[in-house]
Design a binder for these strands. Sequence first.
DNA 1: CGTCCACAGGAATGACGGGCGG
DNA 2: CCGCCCGTCATTCCTGTGGACG
Length: 396
Amino acid sequence: MDILDELFQKMLESRIFKNREALRPDHVPETLPHREEQILKLAGILAPALQGARPSNVFMYGKPGTGKTAVAKYVLRRLNAKVGDKVAVAYVNCREADTNYRVLADLSSSTGVYVPFTGLSTAEVLRRFINGLEKEGKLMIAVLDEIDSLVKKSGDAVLYHLTRINEKLSNSKMALIGITNDLRLTEYLDPRVKSSLSEEEIVFPPYSYEELKDILEARAKEAFYPGVLNEGVIPLCAALAAREHGDARKALDLLRVAGEIAEREGATKVLEEHVKKAQREIERDHVVDVIRTLPVHSKLVVLSTYVLERKGVREITTGEIYAVYRKYCKEIGVEPLTQRRVSDLISELDMLGIVNAKVISRGRYGRTRRIRLSISEQSLKEGLGEDTILRGLSIA
DNA sequence: CGTCCACAGGAATGACGGGCGG
DNA sequence: CCGCCCGTCATTCCTGTGGACG
């Protein structure tokens, strides 16, 4: 039996996950603990739909992982089950559809109207969408999720049109549910859009430690076989996530990855140490991913920093990095950027947490920044490793 | 106590590419 | 379809500055 067989065998025999999907971020469970208030409020707002009337527009805001999307999907699912196909529900993720055009195209397609992915003016797509709605003659409830990324990238023009769309509809109606992670979004909005979009508002506060525990308990019942979770596992996941703005998504991620690690190791139970490993793995994956997708020049800066650090240079400054950076540019035949620009790249790397750059003054010897790597050698190598352009550089 | 180093980091401007409106 | 506009990346030029040294 080779390694692969062994791995698959372990999976097959694993008595850890009953239903892994229950821990995925887009999974909507049967119950949403500690969101009863928001569910009731949203249901109350949408209730007129049961008589075919147009509900008010709703604006829902809260930090990431506070259950906004889950509550919206949950309530709409229940509503749909009651009224059947008299109400059309459209869900648009505005992080993916982040232009005015794409939002309208998405909405159109959920009324069954075909729209080319490019080529039409946005006004034309809007017209077709309105036609599609009128032909169906239904009430449409549209969820615009992560609406902040749309507004920041493309402005609020679509929102303006959508909030006024009912004036143009005679046979059909439309209600909007806007969801945002950015609490200050309304500052960027046209006041007219703001007032009609937030006829009703629902706030999602961060989950507390205790609430996160309840959420995890509920999901764990769906996801794991009974008794496979060690006692301290859920409290640990909850505590780690509570430390970072009460993010339920993070808590569920930790629990899922911990389970996967336990499974891989062929363990029969998920232990606290698996959670700690999961935390490191999630963090590391993130860092590796960030480095991998960095532009070449930034990669060269990281590499230069690493090389200087390994050489034992105690105070690595912008100037030293720039010298090494230039050398590498020459070696691989790339035109070097100016020091000014490299200085900005260092700042960006600092913000990304790959590097730590602190302004220091060495008196007579000038004012500069002291730069240190703030990631492990291993993730750095993994992140840079696949880059063919960097192959064959003298790392010495 | 003034100087002066080695940059930080702001402002203006240019090159480029992609999307939008007409 | 074309020109325009806008955001991003980058350069150029610039002013500002903490503190060791003389």
